[in-house]
């Protein structure tokens, strides 16, 4: 089922990104081997010139990958109409074994890409490009992930057969399911709710504290990572119930559907943005001792932490509002 407009667009973006990264790889190796900012040699000048090209190119590729995640999820939801048994994105992703890996890889690329973009941003702000080697080293590490994502996506889309009877979210995200999703769905709502608010509160506090005092950067990353897990667990175990006003429907994808006014995007976009910002704060902590970055890194991490705090706060506020406005009564 490769002749679907959005699938062509996604494959185009993914293939183009991979091609550009592969084109940049030899340059990355050259930078790692020969970069010497103090040298005035011809080769160094060449390298310095080319960094402009490649950092622009990669910013573009990674920015496209970030948007592609949104398109991927949206498309999976839309295509549910084409498969027997599918009612939301889960059904589409379940059509063959490559669906969920494709989504997870796309999400991994999202976080890696944002971290890379932040490091790149900080690096270009310093006069002596102190992170150039690290940056291109990370880039080389990114190539296999993007390649894997492209391959898995291709396999997934090529393997989308309309005659496959797929399973609906009701079976994957039910208390009886044996998978992790089932365990998360089976979390009792009360403790899950407490954990949800405690962990998210901690993430907001850690990020807010860092934004104000510029201390505890690693903690922000740790708290953000845990907040993502807690938030997803919370969506699975109780938030979805409140949104659907149904005590047994745990699906985290149906909330993206038009029937529920696309409410899910209000949750996921702030959540993912905040998590990415929080992780980037942690990644930048490694470089705060670099002399030429002594001013830039704290300023950037403070801003990112403020963004993370705002994102988590918004996520929590939206979630709370959804619980309060719902007609479902879980307790009482």
């Amino acid at each position: 089922m490769i002749f679907q407009p959005t699938i062509i667009a996604l494959l185009l973006a993914s293939g183009l990104g991979l091609a550009m990264l592969l084109a940049a790889a030899p340059f990355a190796v050259a930078v790692i081997r020969h970069w010497d900012i103090r040298s005035g040699a011809e080769r160094q000048l060449q390298l310095e010139r080319r960094t402009y090209l490649f950092s622009t190119l990669l910013s573009f590729v990674l920015a496209v990958q970030v948007i592609a995640l949104l398109l991927f999820v949206f498309n999976a939801d839309r295509m549910a109409a084409l498969f027997v048994g599918a009612m939301c994105a889960v059904g589409t992703l379940n059509v063959n074994a490559y669906g969920f890996p494709a989504l997870i890889l796309q999400m991994a690329i999202f976080f890696l890409a944002t971290v890379w973009l932040v490091i790149n941003h900080v690096d270009t702000r310093a006069s002596d490009y102190p992170l150039v080697r690290i940056k291109y080293g990370l880039l080389l590490a990114l190539v296999p992930v993007v390649a894997a994502s492209f391959f898995v996506q291709l396999q997934y889309f090529l393997g989308l057969k309309a005659n496959v009877i797929t399973s609906c979210c009701g079976s994957l995200f039910s208390e009886g399911s044996q998978a992790v999703s089932g365990d998360l769905a089976a979390l009792p709502a009360g403790p899950a709710m407490i954990g949800f608010y405690v962990v998210l509160g901690m993430a907001v506090a850690a990020a807010g504290y860092h934004a104000l005092t510029r201390r505890g950067g690693y903690l922000v990353a740790l708290a953000s990572g845990s907040a993502l897990v807690a938030a997803l667990a919370g969506i699975l175990s109780f938030l979805s119930l409140y949104i659907y006003e149904h005590p047994h429907h745990h699906c985290p994808f149906c909330i993206l559907k038009p029937e529920y006014n696309y409410q899910g995007y209000w949750l996921y976009i702030p959540l993912f943005a905040a998590t990415a910002a929080g992780l980037a704060v942690g990644a930048l902590q490694f470089f705060r001792r670099v002399p030429s970055l002594a001013v830039v890194v704290p300023a950037t991490t403070a801003r990112l932490a403020a963004l993370a705090a705002a994102g988590f706060l918004m996520f929590t506020a939206v979630a709370t509002l959804m619980v309060l406005r719902s007609n479902l009564i879980l307790f009482g």
Binding site: T6, I8, A9, L10, L12, A13, V64, L71
Partner: peptide, 16 residues
Amino acid sequence: LAVATLFFFTVVPYTA
């Protein structure tokens, strides 16, 4: 979704 797809079809190749 169609607008986003179209954007991927035109702006991305142009920029690249």
